[in-house]
């Protein structure tokens, strides 16, 4: 079993397989974009998917945002008061949320809540031959099923991340100002002085848009590419969550190094 030649061969075939899938995924992405025009003209379908991936994720996103804000408030105060700058709490909470935690945590939650649902839905449609049936009715399943789900996710994600950040800042305010007693005025004014809309808020939005596109693409691809069995679908769901999480964190590093390098 531990024959080095075999091991090497397995490694090689894994890599070839991976590159194969990457190429297929790229071609699939192209097909999604090509079919976007026609599908977006039928916006009720996309609206439906915004409902499923956006509205149904509202509760988890807002509650998580609130808790993350509460924790940030507590930890931030604990650290900042050592340096006698507790009034900077607002700045710390707002910047951490807007730049990193809002887009990243919201995207991770989105991947496990909406992304897995999208994969499951498309995978089951494939397993029960619904996609083939649609294709036989001369309706392209990519345009009818995949594209609305992709754009639904892309549109919902920045809205969810924005809500997450807003709820988090509210949570930080609850802990910092209401519970601990940091001065309300300096909490907001320090925050306003160092948070810039064009830089911090906008870059956070761009991040969440990119994450949304990545998660939505991974989710629809894994569903569409899943093996048409119950087992295959459950494996595809796992892959969606794992691949999305990795993609989000890797993209976050790339985007951050472009956006926030060397500037305050």
């Amino acid at each position: 079993m531990l024959n080095p030649v075999n091991l090497l061969r397995q490694l090689g075939s894994r890599m070839v397989e991976g590159i194969w899938r990457l190429g297929y995924a790229t071609r699939f992405f192209g097909a999604v974009l090509l079919n976007s025009g026609a599908a977006l003209r039928r916006y009720p379908l996309t609206l439906r998917e915004i409902y499923f991936s956006g509205v149904l994720s509202l509760i988890i996103i807002m509650v998580s945002g609130l808790f993350v804000g509460l924790v940030l408030g507590l930890q931030g105060y604990e650290i900042l008061q050592r340096y006698g700058s507790a009034e900077q709490l607002g700045t710390m909470v707002a910047l951490s949320l807007l730049r990193e935690l809002g887009p990243v945590v919201a995207a991770l939650l989105f991947a496990s809540r909406a992304g897995s649902a999208i994969t499951a839905e498309i995978g089951l449609m494939k397993a029960t031959e619904q996609l083939k049936a649609m294709d036989m009715m001369a309706v392209d399943p990519v345009a009818r099923v995949v594209v609305p789900r992709f754009w639904g996710g892309v549109i919902a994600m920045p809205i969810l991340a924005t809500l997450f950040s807003a709820m988090g800042i509210f949570g930080g305010w609850l802990i910092g100002v209401v519970a601990i007693g940091v001065d309300d005025g300096s909490f907001w004014s320090q925050m306003q002085a160092s948070v810039e809309f064009g830089h911090d808020v906008w870059n956070g939005l761009v991040k969440s848009f990119v994450f949304g596109a990545a998660v939505a693409l991974i989710a629809v691809f894994e569903g569409y590419d899943s093996e048409p069995t119950a087992e295959g679908v459950s494996r595809a769901i796992t892959r969606t969550v794992v691949t999305s999480a990795l993609a989000i964190l890797a993209l976050d590093f790339v985007l951050t190094s472009f956006m926030f390098r060397g500037t305050s």
Binding site: M125, T128, E129, Q130, K132, A133, M136, M137, A138, D140
Partner: peptide, 21 residues
Amino acid sequence: GIYAMRRRMGMLFQFGALFTD
């Protein structure tokens, strides 16, 4: 061309393949 042709075809799948949603 295939899509144009399929508009004049109907197909019943093994287990119906109804759209579950």
